[in-house]
Simulated assay, not measured.
Amino acid sequence: MGAAMETLGSLRPEASDLSSEIGDRRGAAFLRIWQTDRPGRWAVIFSPGDRWFSLEVDGGYSLDLFEEDTPEEEARQLLTKYVDVALAYVRGSMVAERTGRFRAPLVTVPTDAGSTTLRLSLFAGFKAALTPFR
């Protein structure tokens, strides 16, 4: 977890429109980023440094990768990508859409390195399915 904490600390944004916090929870380092004037728009990157990497955003969307024995340089690259996606999302660069046969909701976040798709978590998906349309 030490390497992940160090990497996330080095990637922590320093911008007047953003706030952030870094810490650890249940053996994983995290970096939480949110818009200072819109705290409801947030993203959190979690990882113990290898084995799994997760980006979660408001609304229940996430990007998760599970991989055993991640080399340190690859872990740094993944965390860098997740922070870039988080920053783009928090600043409002995203497109919400529904795809597939069951019209599953997802969010696509464009960055300089390309677009990344975040999918609705199973829990959020079940909750949305049980909520009546308005």
Rank of each mutant, 00 (worst) to 15 (best):
L65N: 08
D50T: 15
S19E: 14
T70A: 15
K127P: 07
R26E: 03
L18C: 06
M1W: 10
S54M: 02
L63C: 14
S93Q: 10
A88L: 00
S20N: 09
D69G: 14
T131K: 06
L87Y: 09
F133A: 15
Q35D: 09
E6V: 05
D24R: 11
A3S: 05
L122P: 09
T131W: 00
W34S: 02
W52P: 03
I33Y: 14
V83A: 03
A15Q: 12
R119A: 00
R26K: 09
A96L: 05
M1N: 12
S54R: 02
R134A: 10
F123T: 13
L8I: 06
D112G: 15
A75D: 07
G125F: 04
S47W: 09
R91M: 10
P13C: 04
P110D: 15
L11N: 07
A86H: 02
F30P: 08
T36F: 08
A29W: 03
E56T: 10
E14V: 09
F133M: 12
T117L: 13
D37F: 05
V107A: 08
L18T: 05
E73H: 08
V107W: 03
L118A: 07
R26A: 07
D17E: 12
E14Y: 00
D17N: 13
F133R: 14
F30N: 05
A4D: 07
A104E: 03
R25T: 04
D50Q: 14
D58A: 14
W52F: 05
F133C: 11
L122G: 12
W34M: 01
R25S: 08
V95S: 15
T80L: 11
Q35I: 00
R26P: 06
A104M: 00
P39V: 06
S10V: 01
T117W: 05
E14N: 06
G125W: 02
A15T: 12
F46L: 04
V44T: 07
V95F: 11
E21L: 04
M1T: 11
R101V: 09
E67C: 08
A86P: 07
G92E: 04
R134T: 15
V90Y: 08
Q35F: 00
S10N: 13
I33L: 13
A86V: 04
S121L: 10
T70E: 15
A28Q: 02
K127R: 14
R101I: 10
A88F: 03
D58K: 07
G100W: 01
F123W: 09
L106T: 11
D17P: 01
E67A: 08
E68I: 02
G92A: 08
S115F: 02
G125S: 09
E74Y: 14
T7S: 12
Y61M: 07
R12G: 04
A43Q: 10
T131V: 05
A75S: 13
P105A: 01
K81S: 12
L18I: 06
T7N: 12
E14H: 01
D64E: 08
R134E: 14
V90E: 09
R41T: 10
M5N: 04
V85I: 11
A15I: 05
M5T: 02
S115L: 08
R119K: 00
P105H: 01
